Structure formats: structure tokens, C-alpha cells
Amino acid sequence: GRPPQPKSVEDLLDRINLKEHMPTFLFNGYEDLDTFKLLEEEDLDELNIRDPEHRAVLLTAVELLQEYDSN
């Protein structure tokens, strides 16, 4: 089946190999997954995450988090 739900933002970023963005998220108040899963493209602009590939991966991760919630 699906991988288990990540336990933290750090756990999530670790899985998608984008842990380099951890300080950015923490500094901007994305300390838990409840906050993280509200992330949208405009937020990525504000966080200055410009890499299109990173953005795509992050937004996909957000969608997956929302799916875990609805099940």
C-alpha cells in the first residue's frame, strides 16, 4: 500500500529529499504538518522557493497529506 503518513515536516522533507528547505519552513511558521498542508504556490513565492522541480514536489506532497486526512 501507501507509505505511512509522515510524522513531521522534517520527516516529510526528508522523504522527498528537500531537507535543505527545512530552515525556511520552520522560520516561516511551518512547524507542523497541519500548517504545511495549507501550502500553496503563492506561499512558495513568498518563501522564495523558486526551483520549479522543488515546487512541484512540495505541492505534490501537500496533496498527498490532504489525501491522508480525507481517508
Score class of each variant (00 low, 15 high):
Lys37Leu: 06
Leu39Met: 09
Arg50Ile: 11
Ile49Tyr: 01
Leu18Gln: 05
Tyr30Pro: 03
His21Leu: 15
Asp11Phe: 01
Leu65Cys: 06
Pro52Glu: 09
Leu38Trp: 09
Glu10Cys: 07
Leu65Val: 08
Lys7Phe: 07
His21Val: 05
Glu31Phe: 08
Arg55Glu: 06
Val62Trp: 03
Glu63Ala: 13
Asn71Cys: 13
Val9Thr: 04
Val62Asp: 05
Asp34Glu: 13
Ser70Ala: 10
Asp43His: 10
Leu18His: 04
Leu12Lys: 00
Phe27Lys: 15
Val57Glu: 15
Leu12Cys: 05
Ala61Glu: 14
Arg2Ile: 13
Val62Gly: 06
Glu63Asp: 12
Val57His: 11
Lys7Thr: 14
Leu33Tyr: 00
Glu63Phe: 01
Ala61Tyr: 05
Glu41Gln: 07
Ala56Gly: 09
Lys19Phe: 05
Leu26Arg: 11
Asp43Tyr: 00
Asn48Leu: 04
Leu18Met: 14
Leu59Ala: 06
Gly1Gln: 14
Leu47Tyr: 03
Phe36Trp: 04
Pro4Glu: 15
Met22Ala: 13
Asn17Lys: 09
Thr60Ser: 15
Leu33Ile: 11
Leu64Arg: 15
Gln66Tyr: 04
Gln66Arg: 15
Asn28Gln: 05
Lys37Tyr: 00
Ser8Ala: 01
Gln5Val: 11
Ser8Phe: 00
Asp69Cys: 07
His54Tyr: 02
Leu47Gln: 03
Thr35Trp: 00
Asp51Leu: 05
Met22Gly: 09
Leu59Ile: 06
Leu47Trp: 00
Asp69Val: 00
Leu58Pro: 07
Leu38Gly: 12
Lys19Thr: 13
His21Cys: 06
Leu58Glu: 07
Asp69Arg: 06
Asp14Ala: 11
Ile16Arg: 03
Glu40Pro: 01
Gly1Ser: 14
Asn71Trp: 10
Arg15Lys: 12
Gly1Tyr: 14
Leu44Gln: 01
Glu42Met: 07
Thr60Met: 08
Leu12Tyr: 05
Leu26Ile: 12
His21Met: 12
Pro3Asn: 12
Leu12Asn: 03
Glu53Phe: 05
Gly29Glu: 02
Val57Asp: 14
Thr60Pro: 05
Asp45Ser: 06
Asn71Tyr: 11
Val57Arg: 15
Asn48Cys: 10
Ala56Met: 10
Leu58His: 06
Glu67Phe: 05
Leu47Glu: 03
Leu13Lys: 04
Lys7Arg: 10
Ile49Leu: 01
Glu67Tyr: 08
Pro6Tyr: 14
Leu58Asp: 09
His54Met: 07
Asp45Trp: 07
Asp14Asn: 11
Pro3Thr: 12
Tyr68Val: 12
Lys7Asn: 11
Thr60Gln: 15
Leu58Asn: 07
Gln5Cys: 13
Leu58Arg: 05
Asp14Tyr: 06
Asp32Val: 03
Pro52Gln: 08
Lys37Ile: 02
His54Phe: 00
Thr35Phe: 01
Arg55Cys: 01
Leu65Phe: 04
Glu53Leu: 07
Asp45Gly: 02
Asp51Cys: 08
Asp34Phe: 01
Asp51Arg: 05
Lys37Asn: 03
Leu38Cys: 12
Ile49Ser: 01
Leu33Ala: 01
Thr24Phe: 01
Glu31Gln: 13
Glu10Ser: 08
Thr35Glu: 10
Ile16Met: 09
His54Glu: 14
Gly1Met: 13
Leu44Tyr: 03
Gln5Pro: 10
Gln5Asp: 03
Leu59Tyr: 02
Ser8Thr: 10
Ser8Asp: 09
Leu65Ser: 04
Arg50Gly: 09
Val57Pro: 07
Leu59Trp: 02
Glu20Val: 10
Lys37Ala: 10
Leu12Ser: 04
Leu38Met: 13
Met22Lys: 10
Asn48Pro: 02
Gly29Ile: 01
Leu58Met: 04
Leu39Arg: 02
Ile49Phe: 02
Leu44Gly: 02
Asp11Glu: 14
Glu63His: 12
Pro23Met: 10
Asn28Arg: 05
Gln5Ala: 09
Val57Lys: 15
Lys7Glu: 13
Phe36Gln: 04
Lys7Tyr: 06
Asp32Trp: 04
Leu47His: 03
Leu33Ser: 02
Asn28Ser: 08
Asp43Phe: 00
Phe36Pro: 01
Phe27Val: 15
Asn17Met: 06
Phe25Trp: 01
Asn48Gly: 15
Thr35Met: 09
Ala61Leu: 00
Leu65Pro: 01
Leu39Lys: 00
Glu20Lys: 03
Ile49Arg: 02
Asp45Ile: 13
Gly1Asp: 15
Ile49Pro: 00
Tyr68Ile: 11
Lys7Cys: 06
Asp51Glu: 09
His54Gln: 13
Thr24Lys: 12
Leu59Asn: 07
Gln66Gly: 10
Leu12Arg: 03
Gly29Trp: 00
Val62Tyr: 02
Glu42Trp: 05
Leu65Met: 08
Leu59Met: 13
Phe27Leu: 15
Leu39Asn: 02
Pro23Asp: 15
Leu18Gly: 01
Glu67His: 11
Lys19Val: 09
Met22Leu: 15
Asp69Leu: 02
His21Lys: 04
Leu12Phe: 11
Met22Ser: 08
Thr35Ile: 05
Val9Phe: 04
Leu39Gln: 01
